[in-house]
Amino acid sequence: MNPSELAAPGGDLSIWALFWQAGWVVKLVMIGLIFASVWSWAIIIDKAIAFARMRTALDRFEQVFWSGQSLEELYRGLSEKKTSGMGSIFVAAMREWKKSFEKGARSPLGLQTRIDKAMDLALTREMERLEGRLGFLASIGSAAPFIGLFGTVVGIMTSFQAIAGSKSTNLAVVAPGIAEALLATALGLLAAIPAVIAYNKLTSDAGKLAVRMEGFADEFSAILSRQIDEKVAARA
């Protein structure tokens, strides 16, 4: 940026012009912030869709599960499809159950433990899938203002140097450089605010879904435990 640009105010003061006449550091910061914003919004939209889908899937599964259908039938129907949420927990548990009984399990206690482990694993995988990339939102939410501030500081520094070069302290000379530098902070806040809000919302939603799935896992574990007892009693 040369002083003559600064010293010639009254020209184009639109946002585009402000961006275009900024120094390269500020430009870089602004471009980075715009990309961060794009990416965080992509995550937000993606997660919102994924959570909504998961919620409907859970609802449907619970409906099917408690409809009185036999577990074998349900398992046969689900094991061929790609499952998510409770479905995958159910499939993991049933798979372990079947494997154990096909090979003739001796200890009912070991079977129970294995089934629980399998369900835990499935649950963890589901949660990992749900909560993945939320960390990026948190980072953007906390770091974007600072990145914007950095751009602003650098921009103001450059414009002050240019002011010193142009040897005029007229406000009309000072103002464009500062406005352009402040644009970086504005972009930082623009990226950070939705990211923070979405992060808080999505984490609490993920927590709720996790509670629901854990509840189902416990319930299903209890059902299977009863089944194991019945089988052991029948065998004996």
Partner: peptide, 8 residues
């Protein structure tokens, strides 16, 4: 993820 990115 694609939908999200494109929309964003």
């Amino acid at each position: 993820m694609k939908t999200g990115l494109v929309t964003s």
